[in-house]
Nucleic acid binder design. Structure first.
Length: 687
RNA sequence: GCGCGGGUAGCUCAGUUGGAUAGAGCGUUGGCCUCCGAAGCCAAAGGCCGCGGGUUCGACUCCCGCCUCGCGCACCA
């Protein structure tokens, strides 16, 4: 039970206010950071009501105070203008006067050591010793469970990763993976029942391409025989196929047939459109050109005609399509090969997931779900959600969601398209898990796809309407633009981790000269450099809002200085180092009120903000909020840590102050470790 | 053409329902290792928040128009 300092005699007429406050506080089982903050809002709202304003606590907005002003949190009084009916009429619309009156009331509250009106703002300064007892004792008694919320029961399913099994995962997948994993952990932390699922796209023309090249190459290699991860091996075959196809296509373009096709294409709608674009671009004055156009008409033809060539004329294309048909018909040899190669690839993926610390509750395979949507399409056709086109294809009229045109949901030959599978898969998953909410972590190129999908699902299953959500994230670009496999600029996940770890190891080897690592052997240093490398990469990807595109500069982004995962790990290691050297044992009787400097208060307020930040990150589906928070926490700790004159810890002469500071360091460590884990980042006791 | 998302410091990015002097990292400049971890700390310089209107006591934030970059609008996934 929390102690309240009643001071009825300070201000006549305020008794009722305090009785209400005391009642509100007594209703709670125990004092916590969250209830503390809620109590403050409640009290401020109550104070406003004292002045005659009809206002509830959820309408109170307390903001941090600028550096130069007094106090810790502030309320702007503009919104109260004209609402404070208990004040004399001549000051009701004067925010500064209202601030004065509010400050008088709030000054009597136990939360603050002082409340001051500054212009139209009421600035409140926390009572530091109260703050420190409250925050530190809660963190230290709950340890990594600090901030846990288990009052929500709803189940959220989150799908992320979704790799294709024809090549290894690259930087784009990596962003998806770390956002998905971190988001899952954050949602779980705030009390949701989270189910993590993956969809492995193990079927389709892409894997057939790899299979074809594998056969052409002799079909005798295995990951073991070449000493390569399975996903990389199969990725090589995919590249080989694309190369072979480009060669075939290039030769055809130069052939008589190719030239003739180009000639007739010129007068086709595509050809004239391309010519127009080229002309328009050329007509712009030099140096002031905007937009872009193909280099020349032939280049436009080459890119425009590629798919058509593949589908209609290519020998390789014909073989790949044939293989896909054989696969769908269940041809034994094809299935056997497919199974073998896919197993290698998926084993490779699992290695990568393991390295990344990513797990799934269930893996869905496209090969098992791709037919599921057909029945639902049939149902939708019957109920009039879909309609049949003249050639037999089934379509969804986008007018039903305020757009124009048709979206095909079943081909004229009766086979599924991408969206058919998603429809089927969503319902299958609902049968499996009965989720209350379904989040898809997928790149923003597919925003439109998901809008249509959710709209269809809502019509098909009205009881699920509104439960679907697309956590859309932006592309990872390179300094010279997007990653292009043709130009070999794709950044491979496994390679990146390896490279980064090597870089970290280099830094360590430098430091070894300074005898910093005297007690650690080579294997331990290898382990640490891997942990640090992963932290650096993950933090880098999570520090940007998912919705934004982000640039990955291979040189600069592998930096270990500044706002990085390495920096956060180092600060955690420092907290551990201090506690080790102090021979610290967590002590519930430490006099926490000994913390009273500005910097210590700043740290305490930062720690107190953890819940708010966590909820914000969870509800806005944005781990970067947490990443930013952790960096700021590190920064204020780093300042106090090196501010030796002001805040000695180990060398502190007053044992009571020392004990309190050690408790603070302990608490910072707890929040850092747990917070970084929520980002999927493992911490190190020593770095 | 229609739809969606960006344009904030030299660069990469933040900016919780509109609130006090718009922030961080890198880079630049200048200080800090006989002193709890220098992968560090402190400080400084650096901004017509794309442009123009509007709403408001108050706009990076909301509304309208324009410029600009990108993505999407497949019987591809």
């Amino acid at each position: 039970m929390r102690q309240l300092r009643y001071s009825f005699y300070h201000c006549p007429g305020i008794e009722q206010f305090y009785c209400l406050l005391a009642f509100a506080v007594q209703k709670r089982k125990s004092m916590s950071v969250q209830t503390f903050q809620q109590d403050i809002l409640e009290s401020v709202a109550s104070a406003c009501r004292q002045l005659g304003a009809e206002i509830q606590s959820d309408q109170i907005n307390l903001a941090p105070v600028p550096e130069t002003a007094f106090g810790d949190i502030a309320m702007a009084c503009f919104p109260l203008r004209g609402k404070v009916n208990a004040l004399p009429e001549n000051v009701r619309s004067n925010p500064a006067a209202i601030a004065q009156e509010l400050a008088k009331i709030l000054n009597e509250l136990p939360f603050f050591d002082e409340v001051r009106a500054q212009g139209p703002y009421v600035n409140m300064s926390y009572d530091t010793s109260r703050l420190s007892r409250l925050v530190l004792s809660e963190i230290l008694s709950n340890d990594e469970h600090f901030g846990d919320q288990d009052d929500k029961k709803s189940r959220i399913m989150i799908e992320f990763s979704g790799p294709n099994t024809n090549k290894p995962q690259h930087l784009g997948h990596l962003r998806n993976n770390v956002i998905g994993e971190s988001m899952s952990r954050i949602l779980k932390k705030v009390g949701y029942d989270v189910v993590k699922v993956n969809i492995i796209n193990d079927r389709g023309i892409h894997i057939c391409k790899s299979m074809l090249s594998y056969i052409r190459d002799g079909a005798d290699k295995t990951p073991e025989s070449v000493g390569k991860k399975g996903d990389h091996l199969i990725g090589d075959y995919y590249v080989m196929f694309e190369k072979d196809f480009q060669a075939e296509y290039g030769a055809w373009l130069q052939s008589d047939e190719g030239k003739a096709t180009f000639e007739s294409w010129k007068s086709s709608p595509e050809g004239t459109k391309a010519q127009k674009a080229i002309d328009a671009y050329a007509a712009q004055p030099e140096g002031k050109k905007k937009g872009k156009a193909p280099a020349d008409l032939f280049a436009a033809f080459k890119s425009d005609y590629k798919d058509r060539y593949f589908n209609e004329k290519s020998e390789l294309g014909r073989k790949a399509s044939q293989m896909l048909i054989q696969w769908e018909q269940g041809d034994e040899k094809t299935r056997e090969l497919w199974k073998k190669l896919n197993t290698w690839v998926i084993d490779g993926f699992m290695d990568t997931y393991k390295t990344l610390g990513i797990t799934f509750d269930k893996l869905y395979y496209e090969s098992q779900t791709y037919k599921l949507g057909k029945d639902l399409v049939a149902q939708g056709l019957e109920s009039g959600i879909f309609h049949k086109l003249s050639d037999g294809a089934v379509a969804f009229d986008l007018a039903q969601m305020g757009l124009t045109g048709d979206k095909i949901v079943l081909r004229s030959n009766g086979t599924s398209v991408y969206i058919t599978q998603d429809i089927g898969c969503a319902i299958e998953r609902y049968k499996d898990y009965h989720y209350d909410r379904m989040i898809y972590v997928v790149a923003d190129e597919q925003n439109h796809h998901f809008k249509v999908l959710f709209s269809i699902l809502g019509l098909l299953k009205p009881e699920l309407k509104g439960q679907f959500e697309h956590l859309s994230y932006g592309m990872v670009t390179l300094p010279n633009g997007r990653m292009k496999s043709r130009e070999g600029t794709v950044v491979d996940t496994d390679d990146l981790i390896e490279e980064m770890a090597g870089l970290v190891k280099g830094v360590m080897d430098d430091k070894t000269n300074r005898e910093h690592y005297a007690d650690a052997d080579e294997a331990e240093l290898q382990r640490r450099s891997k942990v640090i490398a992963l932290a650096a990469i993950k933090y880098f990807l999570l520090d940007v809002t998912p919705g934004s595109w982000m640039e990955f500069n291979p040189e600069k982004s592998l930096d270990l200085q500044g706002r990085t995962g390495a920096y956060c790990l180092m600060n955690y290691a420092r907290t551990r180092s201090i506690l080790r050297k102090a021979g610290y044992i967590r002590d519930k009787n430490a006099d926490l009120s000994k913390l009273n400097s500005m910097q210590e208060k700043k740290l305490l307020m930062n720690l107190m903000k953890f819940h708010t930040t966590l909820n914000w990150a969870a509800e806005s589906r944005d781990p970067s909020k947490l990443a930013e928070y952790l960096f700021n926490l590190c920064k204020s700790f780093a300042f106090i840590f090196t501010d030796k004159a002001g805040h000695p810890i180990l060398t502190c002469e007053d044992p009571a102050v020392k004990a309190a500071r050690l408790a603070l360091v302990d608490a910072i460590g707890v929040v850092l470790k747990m917070g970084l884990n929520l980002l999927g980042i493992e911490t190190l006791e020593e770095m």
